[in-house]
Simulated scan of single mutants.
Amino acid sequence: MKQIKHLSIILLFSSLFFSCNSLKTAVHDQYSYQKTVEIKVEASNLIDKATTPYTDHLKEIGDLGLEIQKIIEYEKSKPNNEITYAMWQVLANKDKNLLVGFFKRWKEKGQLKPFFVEEAKSQIIEAMDLLIQYEAKKDKETKDKLLQLITQ
């Protein structure tokens, strides 16, 4: 009887372990959520300044770039976090039309037209909002939207 009880407990814990391990999605991380919100707010404020000379904002741009590098390193080290990490890589890719790509264009042009800034800002903020939603919910719908954006 004791052996059956022990075997039942072992089977229960084993099934719990394997079922949780099969989810393959990182759990909610308050730090990731908070840093993503902070970076979004800083990026939004900085994007608004892109109608002025790039060289006037070198320190702010450098500081934001450093924050992006930090969050990427943090996200890279978390287990089962491929989606969030991949999305940060897309945001940080200077050859994409999102966050770091926007700053690259601003640098190349010197300053940008207000219409372009507004259009680009709405796309960047939408992508960051999606990342924030995913970090908060970790639901399938938001995950699928992020995957769609990552694979574009």
Rank of each mutant, 00 (worst) to 15 (best):
A136P: 03
A136K: 14
V100K: 09
I47E: 01
L146T: 09
S8F: 14
A43F: 02
F18Q: 07
L12N: 11
L7E: 14
Q111S: 06
L131I: 06
T25K: 11
K24A: 08
E60V: 04
N97P: 05
A86T: 05
T25N: 11
N45D: 11
L11G: 06
Q69G: 09
K35F: 03
G110N: 04
L98C: 05
Y31L: 07
H28V: 05
E75A: 10
L112Y: 00
L130E: 07
Q123M: 08
E126S: 11
Q123R: 08
L99M: 14
Q152A: 08
L147V: 08
K5E: 15
D139M: 09
F102I: 03
L46G: 03
E141I: 10
W106Y: 12
T36E: 02
Y54I: 00
A127T: 11
K104R: 15
I61P: 00
T52I: 00
V27W: 08
K113F: 00
A136N: 11
H28A: 06
K76C: 03
N45R: 11
T142D: 15
S122T: 09
G101K: 08
M87L: 10
T51M: 04
L23Q: 10
S44W: 00
F116W: 11
F18Y: 14
L11N: 13
Y134K: 08
K140G: 05
K5Y: 15
H28G: 02
I72F: 05
I68F: 12
D129S: 06
S15P: 03
D63T: 11
Q3D: 15
K76M: 08
L12R: 10
V27I: 06
Q69C: 03
I47K: 02
T84N: 05
K59C: 02
D29F: 06
K137F: 12
V90P: 01
I68C: 03
Q34S: 07
H57P: 02
D63N: 13
S44F: 02
K78S: 04
N81T: 04
L46K: 09
V27H: 08
S14P: 04
I68N: 06
S19A: 11
N45C: 05
L16D: 07
K109R: 12
K40Y: 04
Q3S: 15
V117E: 00
E119K: 05
Q148K: 13
I71E: 14
L12P: 02
N45F: 07
D63P: 00
I124M: 04
D56Q: 14
T142Y: 04
F115E: 13
F13C: 13
E119R: 01
Y85D: 08
K40A: 07
L16Y: 13
L98W: 06
A26H: 10
Q133V: 03
D56H: 14
I10V: 13
L58E: 15
V41K: 10
V117W: 00
N21A: 13
I47M: 12
Y33S: 05
Q148G: 13
Q123E: 12
G62I: 09
I125N: 04
Y74N: 04
K70T: 07
E73V: 05
Q69A: 09
K5I: 15
A92F: 07
S14H: 07
I72A: 05
I4Y: 15
Y134G: 10
S32T: 05
L46D: 00
